[in-house]
Design a protein around this nucleic acid. Structure first.
Lengths: 221, 221
DNA sequence: GGCCGGTTGTTCAATACTGAACAGACAGAC
DNA sequence: GTCTGTCTGTTCAGTATTGAACAACCGGCC
């Protein structure tokens, strides 16, 4: 007799099933889904593609707080009663995204314990991701953070082992993901190219060898 | 007739009630609760005091990924099936902390929809906090991040309006919270003192005027 | 007393990063 | 075509930050 040992992957795919009845929207790359400050009463669920969440603050430049892929939620903060979007959601690539009305979701998690479990599982893994991201931001150099962002973007299309074409974000957007300036991004990208870690023929191609950067200690030219 | 509009504060205090039956432990300041890598099968809930979560990585210095206060959870990742602690939990001040067995918690959220709601509400607010933290790390200077950490620590004892005594963390720990080096912390603390933003007589006293630092643009000596 | 470990205070050269500026490429609008 | 906007590529002076080092202070301990 198996006891339930944890909330986990056996419910992870729950929201990709057809049981939700929400509508599905298709977007091109780099398209706005919602904007910070708009009224918020729906959640979104990524069926295909990728999304970035950007947060503006008063005095500071804007920052990309999350890079999301297939099976990730966003806009979920409206469940906690925030009436307005806390960030701006923009697609990274062509995406298909399911919308779920907040009320429908609340009803689901009240009446369907599988749905509740799935939501909790997602939120827990989301918390873990953010924690890792914070640890990364506190300890890594800008170069390493850029490497991580590129590898993350590459894995949104995950398959090939050696190298991957990725959605082509502008240096400005990369700067907001990494927390640095555009010239700095340009500088690092050139260096990555010279070292053969990325390639630039039409699209951008990220090699797995870029992982070397992550292991590099903080010094040296 | 009121419909339920969101999961929120009406269930936030749920876990501070006596209904859980978990044991309550008391700790002094700066005491280890659990260590990264240990087996994980309990959650913790802060009744009183404060806790920091620290993450070690292989090559990098360690980083403080969360500063938690009253009514916050930690150790919750075991619910998602991680068998080992992903970080080290250490008290900031004398604290009283309720432990809840993972199995008990799973049972609770299956059978008690109020408990499930409370957990989801907590996780959502946790996600929001992490998002804000990430945005902060991406856009602020080390000086501003230190100011934020000090203000956050001050609010753990929240009451007085003008200035607050706070638990006295070493410069080394502050460095791990801010993501910089100890000499840098020392430099900023001296500057804060000269500007009258903090005071140092026995304990550390943080004035609300420290908030000015948060509004300061990036330049100038 | 002396020793120890952990702390603060401080210096410094080497390195990382910012912000502003300017030029060229390219694509769509008119 | 030309204008406009957005992108890459690049330079640079000024500023911020690192990492290592050394001195001094303290509390506990033997």
């Amino acid at each position: 007799m198996e006891r339930i040992r944890h909330i986990a992957s056996h419910v992870k795919g729950f929201f990709s099933g057809p049981s939700l009845g929400g509508r599905i929207f298709r977007y091109g790359g780099n398209q706005n889904i919602y904007t910070q400050g708009e009224p918020a009463d729906t959640l979104f669920f990524i069926q295909e593609g990728g999304v970035r969440l950007t947060t503006r603050t008063k005095t500071q430049p804007s920052a990309v707080t999350a890079i999301l892929g297939v099976n990730d939620f966003f806009g979920e903060l409206c469940l906690a009663g925030y009436p307005l979007r806390m960030s701006t959601a923009i697609t990274l690539t062509a995406s298909s995204i399911r919308t779920i009305k907040k009320e429908k979701m609340l009803e689901l998690i009240r009446n369907n314990s599988k749905a509740a479990n799935s939501l909790v599982a997602h939120l827990l893994s989301s918390v873990k991701n953010y924690r890792d991201h914070v640890a990364d931001l506190l300890t890594s150099t800008a170069e390493q953070r850029l490497a991580r962002v590129l590898l993350r973007l590459a894995h949104l299309d995950e398959d090939g082992p050696a190298s991957l074409e990725i959605p082509n974000p502008s240096h400005q957007v990369l700067a907001e993901m990494v927390g640095t300036t555009r010239p700095r991004i340009n500088f690092f990208m050139n260096r990555f190219r010279k070292q053969g870690f990325v390639q630039y023929d039409g699209g951008l191609e990220v090699h797995q060898s870029l992982r070397k950067i992550l292991r590099k200690p903080k010094n040296r030219l």
